[in-house]
Nucleic acid binder design. Structure first.
Lengths: 188, 188
DNA sequence: CATTTGAACAAATAAGTAAAAAGTTCAAAT
DNA sequence: ATTTGAACTTTTTACTTATTTGTTCAAATG
């Protein structure tokens, strides 16, 4: 990727985080990389596309960290526990970082959702594959397992929305293992 | 409760559901019960108090239905399953009904939260007591059990926020038992 | 005495309008 | 292959004025 494209994305991200999406103008972005706003159109089709690309990059990086972390465990159980704990941790970081999304939630969330579809699928696929390897699901047809995997991922995503929308940090560091235990092994 | 007070609440609720909170004026409400707007102040301290009372009533009714439903089961397991399934069902109904909250979410949600505190506590208390009776938690100190109970309730509440904020119906009737099973018995 | 009203007032909203700023396009310049 | 500046359209801002809304309260109702 060209240096210009990269610095546009990098500076835009900073500006969005500092002032929010709406308050950041293309002139601001262009000025931050020492160009004029029309120059941005050589790399992106418009403001929304810049935001979309940031979302895609962020999502990819998010998933790469998460997938790498899962790899370090040996058993399915451990992988899943690591998944839940790391997922929640990363989520809380991202929610803090994109605090500005709160004000513009209904405007921007559809764009976020749209551009996360790819990594979303990767995530659900991975959990499904993990579960398929779990003795309990030996011989269970994939659609059933996938359904449960989606349920797990969606439950965690539910917390993510809650983080964006409300201000409460939901799960602190020390409660994380308990949370993961309840989610994976059930409350009963 | 006086007939007037009751009809103010009842008509307000209708109007809020139809046109949203902001678009419904005190004149609209007063007219709907054949009075002038200043008459409303005999019963309520203002518009927000009308909304708050509706929220409290709704929450109380919500919890009464839920508690009654739980009563019908005999074992802790059955009670909890019934709890999760009924809770989600009621939640989806309420989220549909208060669809208007979506637009005014950030303005009204604090009021909703504030006025649900009481039933929220009831709900968490009830689940805690239920779990205390569960063999697995025999001898476990209450704070640990309460923590898990709160985790369960908060996870479900997370879905509730998601329902208000996004448009997707998250769990259909037939997946409900599977959802409840995953949540209570874990995915593993 | 409990309830309702109408007038009065402040604060919020709507409507209108002009000016400025923002997003976008593109031919020309580098 | 990049970048620019001018031109164009769409949005936002700023400002004014008029209306509506939320709220208060003394007086009227019954």
């Amino acid at each position: 990727m060209s240096t210009s494209k990269h610095s546009i994305l990098s500076k835009s991200r900073e500006l969005f985080e500092q002032h929010g999406y709406g308050k950041t103008t293309l002139t601001d972005i262009a000025k931050s990389i020492g160009k004029v706003k029309s120059a941005l159109y050589y790399y992106f089709s418009g403001k929304e596309e810049i935001f979309a690309q940031i979302v895609r990059d962020e999502a990819e990086q998010f998933w790469n960290s998460l997938a790498a972390e899962i790899e370090t465990a040996d058993t399915v159980e451990d992988k899943l526990h690591l998944y839940v704990e790391t997922r929640v941790e990363l989520m809380q970081k991202i929610a803090k970082r994109y605090h500005f999304l709160k004000k513009e939630f209904f405007e921007l969330m559809p764009i976020v959702e749209e551009n996360r579809k790819e990594t979303d699928r990767l995530e659900k696929d991975t959990i499904t594959v993990l579960l398929m390897d779990y003795p309990k699901y030996e011989g269970t047809d994939e659609s059933t397992v996938r359904f449960k995997a989606e349920m797990l991922v969606n439950t965690i995503k539910g917390l993510e929305v809650q983080m964006y929308v409300t201000d409460q940090v939901l799960i602190d560091q020390k409660s994380l293992p308990i949370f993961s235990d309840v989610l994976l092994n059930g409350i009963l």
